[in-house]
Amino acid sequence: MKPNIVKLSLAFLLAAPLFSAAQQLGNLKNVLKPVNVIRVARLTGNSLPGEDLPNANETVKKYDIGGTDLGIAWRMGNGKTGFWFGDTYGADWKPTPEGGPGPAGHWRSNVVGISTDEHLGDGVTFDHMVAKEIIPSPHITDGTGNHTTIPTAAIHANGKDYVHYMEVRKWGPPGTWTTNKSGLYKSADNALTWTECKTVEFSGSSNFAQAAYEKKDGYVYMMGTVSGRQGAIHLSRVKERDMEDKSAYDYWNGVKWLRNQETSATPIIPAPAGELSLAWHQRYKRWVVVYLDEKRHELVLRSAASITGPWTEAQSLVKSADYPALYGGFIHPSSTNGSELYFLMSMWHPYNVFLMKADLKLE
């Protein structure tokens, strides 16, 4: 994928639901702020000259993975943590001045890593990887078909593991791309094999072309954006048991949930937003979303007591001035119980994935 206290616009305020003064005050008094951000370890690829980060996975040697990105983490049904990666290239991949994949072989649109490692202070060690392409793509690169199939979110629900993916038609200028559609794949054997859920599909122009998942109280909540990194964030939900029934999805219109009315969803967080990651933080009893704000050139964090908002102003998490061409920002599910937030961050120029850590302060 290509890189690159509440003050909202009047238009957004008019589109948002009306909240009581007590709700607004409570939100302002409970702002999660990330501080003391560090890079903990490298997850994928070879270490670069002079790099002293832990690099336990040896993905080049073990899995023929020299370059990859994303690292969308989710808690699997067996208690392990799964990681979805995007466009993946082989051992011959080398970093280039322009960044990204470059000329390399063994292109796979997506692969999965699986881990039982819960001690994140020195990185994440994979038990193994499913290092073949799981969501298939014919890799038609002339802009007329299916260029690649990129995972955007994953969740365990209804006894299965699910991944939301987008079928990319063509890449545009940095931060923009066109999708043919988005959909779901599922696994009933702990991420070893996957099959398509043909009953759930979103169009290329949908506000849920890209997604983030979290589950709570029997529902799977889905945040979504249009293709690329320029759109606002919208909200949907579905009962876990109905994950594969698109007619059972509810959409938040700013006032109430509407069943099976996808176009009724209105923004809950203003643009621009890309590569979303959503979590319910059990310690702070707040929703947390992390995403790339390409206008600010930062990964940012917002929090809210209610999934429908109001959401706090974006808090700076990681700046591209410190980590050039950063993107991603996917929360590790093991870090929602304490005051340390671990997340997976991609960098375009080394085109690989790193584990990051931030301390959280509730102010």
Results as ranks from 00 to 15, higher is better:
W194Q: 02
T96N: 11
D250Q: 14
V31R: 08
G254F: 15
A314P: 07
V35L: 13
Y351Q: 12
L13K: 01
N27R: 14
P136C: 09
W93P: 04
W287E: 07
A209M: 06
I5Y: 15
A157V: 07
F126D: 02
T81C: 10
T176D: 13
T59A: 06
P151R: 02
Q210W: 00
K181T: 12
D87G: 07
A212K: 05
M243R: 06
S346V: 10
G77W: 05
R241K: 15
V163F: 06
E58T: 10
I135H: 04
D122R: 11
K181H: 10
T312G: 01
A321L: 11
A11Y: 02
E58C: 11
G67D: 04
A209Y: 00
S206I: 10
L301V: 15
N180G: 10
N46I: 05
V168Q: 11
M345R: 00
T195I: 15
F83T: 00
G338Y: 06
S182M: 01
W257N: 11
H281G: 09
K62E: 05
L14A: 12
G102C: 08
I134P: 07
P95S: 07
Q23P: 07
S277H: 04
K33N: 12
I268H: 01
Q23D: 14
P136Q: 03
N207D: 11
N253K: 08
S339D: 12
D250V: 03
V112N: 11
R296H: 12
G328F: 12
Y89V: 13
D92S: 07
L235E: 05
H128E: 09
S320V: 04
G121H: 00
A191T: 15
F85R: 03
A279N: 07
W194L: 05
G77Q: 09
R302C: 15
F208G: 04
A191H: 07
F126W: 00
N30K: 09
S187G: 02
K285A: 12
N30E: 09
V111H: 07
Y291W: 13
S334R: 05
Y342V: 05
A154G: 12
L13V: 00
A188C: 06
A11R: 01
Y185A: 11
L14E: 09
A188S: 15
N30F: 11
K61V: 03
D242L: 04
G231C: 02
N78G: 04
A157N: 01
H332P: 05
P173M: 03
G183R: 00
S346L: 07
Y327V: 09
S9K: 02
M347H: 10
N207I: 05
I233A: 06
L8S: 10
P138V: 09
E51C: 03
E98F: 00
A16I: 05
S109K: 09
V168S: 08
F85S: 02
W311S: 01
N253G: 03
V163S: 01
T148G: 14
P174H: 01
G26L: 03
K61M: 02
V318T: 15
H106E: 08
L53T: 08
K239R: 14
E298P: 08
W74A: 01
Y165K: 08
A232Y: 01
Q315N: 09
K61A: 03
N260V: 00
V288Q: 05
R108D: 06
K33H: 05
Y63C: 03
S203L: 08
F19S: 14
K361Q: 12
M1A: 10
R241N: 14
T152C: 09
F85C: 01
T144I: 04
T148I: 14
